[in-house]
Every structure is written in structure tokens, then in C-alpha cells.
């Protein structure tokens, strides 16, 4: 019993080392730079409004893996993940947040959107213009594994949407197209950042299917080495956010967590969203950064695929189209 109390004491001590409020945001890979700046903006606002200082702790990793960690007990006050299925997984496997979490904030609880674009080598030596070019002989395509990476699932569905339109909905031809595309993938990394490193740092591949914001980040980090190609059609990605209500209640951070996520929709935060190459919801911020966001015909997961739950089951669960194509 004494050791028990000792462990308790240490964990309490460790939790209160930093004075003031504390919040843990469990997020996915490519949001690191964005949340660094956003956290500073919110901490300033919080201090002005409440007079209390705030430390926001961040944890980043593949979206599916992060969701798993929260299910296993990582004490996140808020989750900001790549796909709604990853937050659904938390709601379905635990009682940490309600099943209707996505209705709690505007725009399906997605304060910013993104899409999938191509990154190619400088000068586009292989002349890659659209999805159709990805299945050509001798083209190496870099994309992470849809089983583990959120970004890769968007990639897969965007390619599916292109093929569906091209072949007039003939599903066997669509599957053939995706099989040909996957044949051109030499390495299936587990997460988005791993693929970025494969393409940009290790120099493998001719084209990298990337989050739009990650594509701009690569241009910034490796100047003059790559360029962005906008395909004829892509997919609207809506990375959602949610308060992990039960944990926030336990930590006494409910109001803080709610204010934190609501701040994402403010004019100031939406400007930071645009600056970090995510597409802002706020029209004003979108207009300001619009030169980074060329118009693309975007398919929508709810409209074109019947929602994430359905798409997940049809394509990515065991025995789905991805498994079927992989076996060829």
C-alpha cells in the first residue's frame, strides 16, 4: 500500500511540475509545424482571457497508431487525427467520447481541409501530369501503406475516383488500374513521414502521392529539388478534431479543451492554417492564401464513397479491395 501511495505521489508530482494549465493534443504526422504555431497563438489568448499560463503537449505519429495509443490509455485531452474512422475507432472501442462526436463542432468537426497532390522531381523529367501516367511502365510511385497510414487511404480513394470516372464505373477495370498503380510502388512505408523521407531524402521514386501541405513543406525543406503537379481530380480530405471528453473531465480541462478546438475556427487560427498549406474553412483566410490552393475537382468521401465507415469496410478492412488487388 505504501508503494502504491508512492507511485501515486510521483505521478501527481510529475503532472504538476509545470505550473498552470496543461493540455495533451494527440495528433498525426504532418501537423507538427502547424500545431507548434497554433499552440502559441492559443496560449496567448488563454492567458489574456483567464490570466493562466498554458502548456500544450504534443504527440505525433501515424493517425491509426495514435488512435490505438489513445484506446490503450494515452491520456489525450484532445485528438486531432487524419481521418474520422480513427476517432470513430476510439468511440467504438472505449467510452472516452460519444459516438456522435463529429457533430460537436462546425464543418464535420474539421476546421481545415487538404487534398492529395503529386510531387515530382524538378523539371518533371518523366512528364507526369495525371493519375493515368502513374500506371505507365517504368514509373516509380511512392505512397505509404493504406493499412497503416491515413494519407495513403486518401491516395487510394483518389486514384479509385479517377479510374471510376475514366472507365465509366466498370469496377473490374478500376481494380485493374489500381493493381497496375500498386505494381509501380517499390516501397510501402507505414506512415506519411516515412514516405516523404523515402522520396525526398533517399531520392527513391519518380512521383510521390502526398498531402498538399506536406508537398509544400518538401519544397521548403529541399528547395529546387521538387515540384508539385496538380492532377485532374483529387479528393477532399477533412482531418477531424475532437475533445476526448472522459479524459478531459478527469483532468478538469473540459472548458479548456473545448476552447482550444473552437479557437481553430477563429480568424487568427485560420490564417495560420493557410500559412501551413492547409486549406482554411474561413473564406477570408482562403482568399489570402489562395495562390497555394489551385482549383481541383474534388470528390467527397460522404457523397462519392458513402462515408468513411463504408469506404473503410469496402476497401481497407481485411478482404477489402486493397487486399484483393495486392494478391494479384
Amino acid at each position: 500500500m505504501k508503494t502504491l501511495r508512492l507511485i501515486k505521489l510521483t505521478s501527481v508530482l510529475l503532472a504538476s511540475v509545470a505550473f498552470g494549465d496543461e493540455l495533451l493534443n494527440v495528433s498525426y504526422d504532418p501537423t507538427r509545424e502547424f500545431y507548434q504555431e497554433f499552440n502559441a497563438s492559443f496560449a496567448k489568448k488563454w492567458k489574456q482571457e483567464t490570466g493562466r499560463s498554458l502548456t500544450v503537449k504534443q504527440s505525433h505519429g501515424g493517425s491509426g497508431k495514435q488512435s490505438r495509443s489513445v484506446i490503450d490509455g494515452l491520456a489525450a485531452d484532445v485528438v486531432t487525427l487524419a481521418l474520422s474512422v480513427d476517432i470513430d475507432a476510439i468511440a467504438n472501442n472505449t467510452d472516452l467520447l460519444p459516438k456522435d462526436w463529429q457533430t460537436k463542432l462546425p464543418y464535420n468537426s474539421s476546421p481545415y481541409t487538404s487534398t492529395i497532390v503529386f510531387v515530382v522531381r524538378k523539371g518533371n523529367p518523366k512528364g507526369i501530369k495525371d493519375w493515368g501516367d502513374l500506371v505507365r511502365n517504368g514509373i516509380q510511385v511512392i505512397t505509404p501503406n493504406p493499412k497503416t497510414s491515413g494519407g495513403a487511404r486518401w491516395n487510394y480513394l483518389a486514384a479509385w475516383a479517377y479510374a471510376e470516372r475514366k472507365f465509366g464505373g466498370d469496377e473490374s477495370k478500376v481494380k485493374e488500374f489500381l493493381a497496375a498503380l500498386l505494381k509501380n510502388v517499390p516501397v510501402l512505408d507505414t506512415g506519411g513521414r516515412g514516405s516523404t523521407t523515402t522520396f525526398a531524402q533517399r531520392g527513391i521514386g519518380d512521383v510521390f502521392l502526398s498531402w498538399e501541405n506536406e508537398a509544400h513543406l518538401i519544397e521548403k525543406e529541399f528547395p529546387g529539388k521538387t515540384e508539385i503537379v496538380i492532377p485532374s481530380i483529387s479528393i477532399l480530405a477533412e482531418p477531424p478534431v475532437a475533445v476526448v471528453e472522459k479524459i478531459a473531465k478527469k483532468h478538469g480541462t473540459e472548458a479548456l479543451a473545448k476552447a482550444y478546438l473552437e479557437h481553430l475556427y477563429s480568424a487568427e487560427a485560420q490564417d495560420i492554417v493557410g500559412k501551413h498549406f492547409y486549406r482554411p474553412r474561413d473564406p477570408k483566410a482562403f482568399a489570402k492564401w489562395s495562390k497555394n490552393f489551385p482549383e481541383i475537382q474534388l470528390v467527397n468521401i460522404d457523397r462519392d464513397f458513402g462515408g468513411w465507415a463504408k469506404a473503410q469496410k469496402k476497401h481497407f478492412d481485411d478482404g477489402g479491395t486493397f487486399d484483393e488487388i495486392q494478391q494479384h
Partner: peptide, 27 residues
């Protein structure tokens, strides 16, 4: 250790009840 001490592990519920954090913390 996740299997033993994770939120859904063998001792997870007991640990949560006593507010002891092992996984994802220093212990």
C-alpha cells in the same frame, strides 16, 4: 506492458480506478 497495464490490459481498469498511470508515463 501495454497488454498488462494498458487501458484495456489485465490491470488497466484497476489502475484507472486508482488513478495510477504506468503506460505512456515515466513508470
Amino acid at each position: 506492458w501495454v497488454l498488462l497495464f494498458g487501458a484495456h490490459g489485465w490491470f488497466g481498469p484497476w489502475l484507472a480506478e486508482h488513478d495510477i498511470r504506468i503506460i505512456f508515463a515515466l513508470p
